[in-house]
């Protein structure tokens, strides 16, 4: 499979007509256009983030301080800042969108200081769940797509459709009530929430086990809900590939069915699934918000829910920027990966 052409490495005896300005090949141009496109999207999000909180009706100060006592000095500071012309405020903001001048209303420290320590639990939860969901979802999709219409396919498609229709936090609560609290006389086995037992040192192997024990239910919830979509897409793209002539050729060569599937159909069907898994990160972020809330995991999601009452607007703004930035980055990775996997995209 061809790789993205490295502009410097590709031997060019004569400048070929495919080459544009700056001596970039089609691959290089593709990468450049995608990177610029993502940068443009991020600039849009940054600008949107500024105006969203200022263009809406009402007094911004009452929005920032709704439902809480704020001392006069802070009110004055807020007012001098927000009384500047909008243009000046915007210039101030755009110079460094990450240096929020307003402190978190709830914690009294800059929003990013609140957010940064919360990133790891979320990454651990979402990362583990995504990896599990990908492996299981792709496997399920291949199995049911290849033997389409048979019993396994029918059962798995119905199950995945039901899971796909399920609010993930509700599934989490049901798992909690069944496996952590225990109903109908069953004992509760799993912890009811949190990331570790208080007092346990999480840097020791015993601590890791404790964390794994605490993460079992939340990771299961997210993985089961996500694998539904991945397996539906994998099944659909495998079925799309099954009508293709090259599979006929592979069979005519005398390849066994399993080999046709593994070497020919699956690699091609994996392309749309790969992109979907990355594109889906926006949806994954949403799942993390409610699941962390239900399982009281101190990550970005439960921080978002905490910031809702008040509301703690500076923290919400920074979180919005972080979530959007992460999803834009994931999309860029998906685009570049797709191009690397499928040479047709680049030209």
């Amino acid at each position: 499979m061809a790789l993205v052409a490295e502009p410097a490495a590709a031997p060019t005896p004569a400048p070929s007509p495919a080459r544009g300005r700056w001596g970039l090949g089609p691959g290089g141009r593709y990468v450049l256009s995608r990177v610029l496109g993502s940068a443009g999207t991020f600039v849009f999000v940054v600008v949107f983030n500024f105006f969203l909180f200022r263009m809406l009706p009402g007094d911004p100060i009452s929005l920032y301080t709704r439902g809480r006592d704020v001392d006069q000095a802070m009110m004055r500071a807020l007012r001098t800042q927000l009384d500047q012309p909008l243009g000046a405020q915007f210039l101030d903001y755009i110079k460094n969108p990450f240096a929020q001048t307003l402190d978190s209303v709830k914690y009294g420290i800059p929003p990013w200081d609140v957010i940064l320590p919360r990133i790891w639990p979320t990454l651990l939860l979402v990362g583990t769940a995504t990896i599990l969901a990908t492996i299981l979802g792709v496997w399920l999709g291949i199995r049911s797509g290849w033997r389409r219409g048979q019993r396994f396919d029918k059962v798995s498609t119905t199950t995945t459709l039901v899971l796909y229709s399920m609010p993930e936090f509700w599934f989490g609560m049901i798992l909690l009530i069944v496996f952590a609290v225990g109903v109908f006389g069953l004992p509760g086995i799993f912890p009811i929430g949190g990331l570790s037992t208080p007092g346990v040192d999480t840097s020791t192997p015993a601590g890791w086990l404790d964390v794994a024990w605490h993460l079992t239910l939340p990771v299961t919830t997210l993985a089961v809900i996500y694998l539904a979509e991945y397996s539906l897409v994998m099944r659909a793209s495998l079925i799309d590939e099954m009508g293709q002539d090259y599979l006929q050729t592979a069979r005519a060569k005398g390849l066994r069915d399993a080999l046709v599937r593994r070497r020919h159909a699956v690699p091609n069907a994996l392309l749309p699934t790969t992109t979907l898994i990355f594109l889906n990160l926006g949806f994954v972020v949403g799942g993390a918000i409610t699941i962390e809330y239900v399982f009281s995991i101190q990550g970005l999601g439960s921080l978002t829910v905490d910031a809702l009452d008040g509301p703690d607007v500076p923290v919400l703004q920074s979180l919005f920027l972080l979530f959007s930035g992460a999803v834009i980055l994931a999309n860029l990775v998906a685009d570049l990966l797709y191009a690397k996997l499928d040479p047709r995209v680049r030209s």
């Binding site: 809406l56 990160l281 926006g282 919400l316």
Partner: peptide, 15 residues
């Protein structure tokens, strides 16, 4: 590209 739930949360809070 903007993730749905964070955007909806921010909008619902502001409105």
């Amino acid at each position: 590209v903007i993730p749905f739930l964070p955007l909806a949360i921010v909008l619902a809070t502001v409105l």
